[in-house]
Amino acid sequence: MTVNMNTTLPPGISQTPAKSKTTVDYNSFLKLMIAQMKNQDPTQPMDSTQYVSQLATFSQVEQTVQTNNKLDQIMQSSALAQADSLIGRSITSADGSTTGTVKEVRLANSGLVAILENGSEVAVGPGVSITAIG
């Protein structure tokens, strides 16, 4: 199903470029609502309470997305704080094939990655063993 979003916006509402395909903001919502209003059946227009309900639902979704973004930032900060404690410790990968002393730690999309003195990399996760040297 193809939806054509070429609509003329009312005065005071500007068209902004999308930040990403997964980002939806109030301008996008207003465009969709205007398109919905233009294309509704004039003999049976949508009840105003339905518009309010849609706006409330959209607001809740946007707040949830913002909360998730903040939680991601907090988790990254926590991971970086924990990363500092890994440097200088001995680490063994979950399968036991890689062992060494952690030289540095990098934060990747999948989580923490410990870089060993020999250049090997170990993804820090379940099954990984970390011990103090000495």
Rank of each mutant, 00 (worst) to 15 (best):
M1W: 08
V3D: 04
V3Q: 10
N4Y: 11
N6V: 04
T8H: 02
P11E: 01
G12D: 00
G12L: 00
I13N: 00
Q15H: 08
Q15Y: 06
P17V: 06
A18P: 11
K19H: 13
K21Q: 12
T23D: 15
V24G: 06
N27A: 14
I34W: 01
K38F: 06
N39Q: 13
Q40H: 08
D41N: 15
D41H: 09
D41V: 04
P42H: 10
T43G: 04
T43D: 09
T43L: 12
P45V: 12
M46W: 05
S48Y: 08
T49H: 11
Q50A: 12
Q50Y: 11
Q50N: 10
S53L: 08
Q60M: 15
V61I: 12
E62D: 06
Q63I: 02
V65Y: 08
V65W: 05
N68E: 09
N69P: 07
L71M: 15
D72L: 12
Q76D: 15
S78A: 12
S78C: 07
A79E: 13
A79Q: 12
L80G: 04
L80A: 05
Q82A: 12
S85V: 05
S90R: 08
S90V: 10
S90D: 08
I91P: 00
I91H: 00
T92D: 05
A94N: 07
D95V: 05
G96D: 08
T98H: 02
T99W: 01
T101M: 00
V102W: 01
V102G: 01
K103T: 00
E104R: 12
E104F: 02
V105S: 03
R106N: 09
A108S: 15
N109V: 06
G111R: 09
I115E: 07
I115W: 01
N118P: 01
P126F: 14
V128Y: 04
T131N: 13
T131S: 11
A132H: 09
